[in-house]
Design a protein around this nucleic acid. Structure first.
Lengths: 350, 350
DNA sequence: TTGTACGCGTTATCAC
DNA sequence: GTGATAACGCGTACAA
């Protein structure tokens, strides 16, 4: 089968002759044009305050004229610090993580850093491998959408001697800096809201480890405090899509143990549960209330609207970026440990 | 407000004393241990076939024993090639792009390359800036989830002299390699399916430029061929979420010009349109048929199921990665220009 | 305030 | 098949 060509509009049609691997400009050539020594060009770019007004202007003009950009590898080799910021995400496809990464990118790119992204896929093994490769990559800073649990990895990260931000949780002992929130509190918030609404027999759907376990912990404790019954805990180890939520609810209902409300550890699961419940003819929320976490794009759109608990993931990313910028710029951040507010967004599903 | 701590389980609790920035091993130390010269260690790692069986084993043992990893910046500086592969995405949050990036990462990480991600946000200006920074970053290869339209950028990329894969379209003259599909064909496929189902008065919802324009072009041409009427073209410049699709449908309906089927250039828009239509009490598909593009996670889940046209984005990423691997490994790929099949996935919305 | 000399860690090149 | 030498392009350290 042959496809129809996509004849894309070419802006400015002068197809120049193909030349291979143009050698990039070196600092020396810029220096000659500006009539100074190479080190002066370097200073104009890195420590402009050390130059006289006059020289600086002269050099920057030459830089602008030639379009010079210094070689990041040479820079990293000599100075021991690169302009790469590494971000590690458990799952690239998560909307919340994506928003955080966007926020981070907006901050750090303003300072000329490049963003490297790695996906750990919720695997300790991958985490170990990636952190190991950091040792030689020598990034300027690292951000995680999560906290590092393995002590071995924590130690390896400390030894990098670079700014590190963990996120998405509120541990007592972060490696370095933190923009987090309490997952235990999130779980408690969920139980409390359901109690307020009069739901007594509860279920939890989520991963058994990491943040899922923390949300469950808070959920369970608060339910007990309110005299609610946690009748079912439905474990989902690999959350990939909405179908996983549908399947989880199916298992939950098959369990027999009747519940009147389910707290799902993320909105993907909650959305799936909601869709499956309606497909089975259950009335939401009278037959079953559903509460999610994360405020996904679809949460507000799927009838009757998913009640969910969330923080501002984009803001989280920006703050993480701001912390890194401060450190990289030699300023000690005022609040290296930040706790993001959790919001309960009440819609029709509870 | 104070948060409850997330007391994360620490695996292996031996909190070692914090040591700063451990200096990484250099090639020279490994050479001494192996009793060879540094260059021999380098060869054992890069061109093992050039060494005698004996020396190679000796050196690799020393490498394994010490855990040596060469400094990527020094390597990049001297050799002119880094192990960074740069991927540029128009929007990190898109599910389809995310899948492609995952596929790409799986391929190239197997060969020890690192993935760098940049977001162009559908902006020529950002594209120019990022491509410019590539000149000095000297990545090993580049992948785009899209094709480069600006001739100036195409030329700049050619001059990098590195493998480049464009995707997501099927232009006549890709810069280098291509794993694409025809957006014009996708549009035509949409019109044809709607014709088969008996829909006569059509609408298009999508971006006015780039791939949106191509899909519209194919849609319009095929509709004409089938004697259908393209009654409305509703332009959406910035597609961020489902709400944009809802708003677009609202505008479409306000237009008066009655249509019986709408082709949305992506599933985010289609999902929004579907939700809005149902919220207004329209019966889908009898009052209005809706057809999407991209097969998002939610497409099959939202009643009555979104009919959509799609390709396998994860496979696209893998193939792009395989092409890059071939080139980077010195093998000329057999099919440097690939055309991915488009699938029509019929669900309830048409 | 500006410049000189050197070295960051690796690999290209050439010699043996 | 292995090694000696130099060089990649920049910024640190120190001198002027």
């Amino acid at each position: 089968m042959s496809a129809t060509y996509d004849d894309v509009l070419r802006v400015s049609g002068h197809a120049a002759a193909p030349r291979p691997a143009a050698k990039a400009l070196r600092i020396e050539e810029v220096a000659q044009i500006a009539g100074v020594s190479p080190i002066t060009v370097s200073r104009a770019l890195r420590q402009p305050e050390k130059l006289s007004e006059n020289t600086r202007r002269k050099v920057l003009a030459a830089v602008a004229q030639t379009g010079y950009e210094s070689n990041p590898h040479a820079r990293a080799l000599r100075s021991g610090r690169s302009t790469l910021v590494a971000a590690f995400v458990s799952n690239i496809l998560s909307q919340q993580f994506g928003l955080a990464i966007q926020g981070l990118a907006e901050e750090i790119e303003a300072d000329g850093y490049e963003l490297m992204i790695g996906q750990t896929s919720y695997s300790y093994a991958k985490e170990v491998a990636m952190i190991r490769s950091l040792r030689s990559l020598r990034p300027a800073a690292v951000m995680f959408t999560g906290v590092i649990e393995l002590e071995e990895n924590r130690q390896a990260l400390r030894e990098l001697g670079i700014p590190i931000v963990e996120t998405w949780a509120f541990p007592r002992d972060p490696i370095d800096m933190l923009v987090g929130f309490s997952n235990v509190d999130a779980g408690a918030m969920a139980a409390r809201h359901l109690a307020t609404r009069g739901y007594r027999r509860l279920a939890f759907i989520g991963r058994s480890g990491g943040r899922g376990a923390l949300r469950l912990q808070g959920f369970r404790a608060e339910a007990e405090r309110n005299g609610q019954t946690l009748a079912r805990v439905e474990t989902v180890e690999d959350v990939r899509n909405i179908a996983d939520g549908r399947a989880a609810l199916t298992r939950l209902l098959a369990g027999g143990n009747k519940v009147d409300a389910a707290f799902c550890a993320n909105d993907l699961l909650a959305t799936g549960a909601l869709i499956e419940a309606r497909a089975r003819g259950l009335a939401i929320p009278s037959d079953l209330a559903i509460l999610g976490f994360g405020d996904n794009d679809t949460a507000g759109e799927i009838a009757p609207g998913l009640t969910t608990i969330s923080m501002d993931a984009h803001e989280l990313g920006r703050r993480a970026g701001a912390l890194l910028r401060d450190r990289l710029g030699g300023r000690e951040p005022r609040q290296p440990l930040q706790n993001l507010a959790l919001h309960l967004i009440v819609r029709g599903s509870t």
